[in-house]
């Protein structure tokens, strides 16, 4: 009985404060700086309880942008495995969704959904901060559902 109560409180607390991990896997930084712009006072993701963390073991939502280069692929897979369930993977930008303008480059591995299951796609090159916010909101909804 007590255990159920504790579990319910923890779940409620977790839902209200999702932690993000942002990884740039070989893009031009355009998506990265728009993601950082989402942190700053004008677009402000912190009002939704979101916090950007660097440790995969503490994160709930993975924000991945960039076309995956061959050199970074093993690290990317390891980060995915180190993130605990339930987790939501968000592919930000054209490069993560479909390799974008680098589709026939020699150093790029497949788009992100060939490497890991992706839950939310945010298109754009780079997507506007408003679009990123909308995508992250969708990710939060999905994540709350996964908690049920």
């Amino acid at each position: 009985m007590l255990f159920r109560l504790v579990e319910k409180t923890l779940n409620y607390a977790r839902k209200k404060s999702p932690w993000f991990l942002h990884l740039d896997t070989g893009g031009c930084n355009g998506c990265s700086i728009e993601l950082f712009a989402v942190l700053n006072p004008r677009y402000d993701i912190e009002r939704f309880g979101g916090l950007s963390k660097a440790n995969p073991r503490h994160t709930d939502i993975l924000l991945i942008d960039g076309a995956v280069t061959k050199k970074i692929r093993p690290r990317l897979e390891r980060i995915y495995q180190q993130t605990p369930e339930p987790k939501v993977v968000v592919a930000v930008g054209s490069c993560a969704i479909s390799k974008g303008i680098f589709h026939d480059a020699y150093n790029i591995d497949g788009p992100l959904d060939k490497i890991m299951p992706v839950d939310v796609y945010i298109p754009g090159c780079p997507p506007k901060p408003e679009a990123i916010l909308q995508g992250v909101m969708k990710a939060l909804q999905l994540w709350e559902e996964k908690h049920e």
Partner: peptide, 14 residues
């Protein structure tokens, strides 16, 4: 370095 290397110089030739 090289984690961001996308082979742009080669792409530009095509």
């Amino acid at each position: 370095i090289g984690y961001m290397h996308r082979g742009i110089e080669e792409l530009m030739q095509r």
